[in-house]
Amino acid sequence: MMRHIAVQITPFDAGQELRKFEGNRLGAVASFSGIVRSENDIIALSIEHHPIMTYMALEKLCTLAEQRYKLLGVTIIHRYGTLKLGEPIIFVAAASAHRKEAMAAIIAIMDRLKTDVPLWKKEIFADGTSRWIEQKQSDVDRSSAW
């Protein structure tokens, strides 16, 4: 079982993270990358984490996904700090014997992460103002589905 969790300020290389799964006799590796997107004049996102709980919650999420989807490996990297447009925010990869479990695990991890992991995003706008993003009911509904 290969597990890699990181809550970090520094950027990551998604390609490099995926290559870590090579040669491990896995049948399937699925992944998701989240990137800061251009919307409503946003120039950056400021992401806040909890120094202890964020990592703990990601560990719990990995354990849940490993058990439910028979994963052979899982990686979750979430950044914090100020991230500009186009910068990577999150990387999730799941490895299993077959594609179905790996792909389902990615969706489930992302859905749960949006409600269970202490992380908060603030939008920074071109005019210097900012606004905390609020949790969406649709995220809560999706998360409670699994």
């Binding site: 909890h50 979430h78 992302m110 949006k114 992991v117 992380l119 908060w120 609020e134």
Partner: peptide, 10 residues
Amino acid sequence: LAIFPPVTGG
């Protein structure tokens, strides 16, 4: 005790 709004990561 930690107090915070609902989370919005991902």
